[in-house]
Design a protein around this nucleic acid. Structure first.
Lengths: 121, 121
DNA sequence: TTGACAAATGCAACTAAGTTGCGTTAGTAT
DNA sequence: ATACTAACGCAACTTAGTTGCATTTGTCAA
């Protein structure tokens, strides 16, 4: 029995029109305990509603999963994040790797870093 | 003036014939304080001797940089790590991204996850 | 060789992300 | 109205990583 709590609604709404968000960031915007946030996110990931993003800065980020598989352009100057579709088809290489090494790839993590337009000017 | 301390030598030797290693892992094998390890690794990264690897499990790993740019096959069952050369040439796509978005890519992080041969059997 | 300087290390204390156990609040079904 | 349980808060904890400071130690120059 899943309840449609105010926080759950608000969180999903918030995530709808924002990029990948970290727990500390959510904690600043909502007056709920961090434990609640972690548990909520864990559940939403489990149910396939959210996907975990990792920018390697020591905190995980979460994003609406329905956006589909894509990657991010992370500006290292202003921390802005843009979505990018690399239509990365590794299937040939994955097949190759399996034949050579017997390793079955189930997922990958690819994020791109650099300098965004406004930070270049 | 950089000194060739015993720990420095031993650490580099250790890293030579091992995959990406985390600070906790180093801490288990050497009787030096963790602060020393962090400072040592920071210096070695700065001097281009080591490169930072991120598997998204909450701890950074470090690897001899002279191995050149490559990626990893991380087994999610036994945590083994194999190196893989994807000869990833994103230059076309990077050019495309720059023209469309004005974003200049300087680096990327790509790691592959799945099940290794021995864990499949 | 000795004194001085800087690199290297240890240590305690701290921050920050994330986890766990437990007790309480509050929807929901019967 | 009652009973059940999802949801929540809170305190305490773990772990990665950082910082300031004092101490040790290697190296160089007099």
């Amino acid at each position: 029995m899943v309840r449609n709590t105010p926080f759950r609604k608000a969180l999903l709404m918030f995530l709808q029109d924002s990029g990948p968000v970290s727990v500390p960031a959510i904690n600043e915007r909502f007056s709920v305990h961090k434990t609640t946030i972690y548990r909520e996110l864990e559940m939403l990931v489990q149910r396939g509603k959210l996907s975990e993003i990792d920018f390697g800065d020591g905190t995980k980020r979460f994003e609406i999963a329905s956006k589909g598989h894509h990657h991010h352009l992370v500006c290292e100057r202003c921390d802005s994040v843009a979505e990018i579709d690399l239509h990365d088809d590794f299937s040939d290489q994955e097949q190759n790797i399996f034949e050579k090494l017997g390793f079955t790839i189930t997922r990958h993590n690819l994020e791109l870093f650099g300098v965004c337009k406004s930070c270049t000017l």
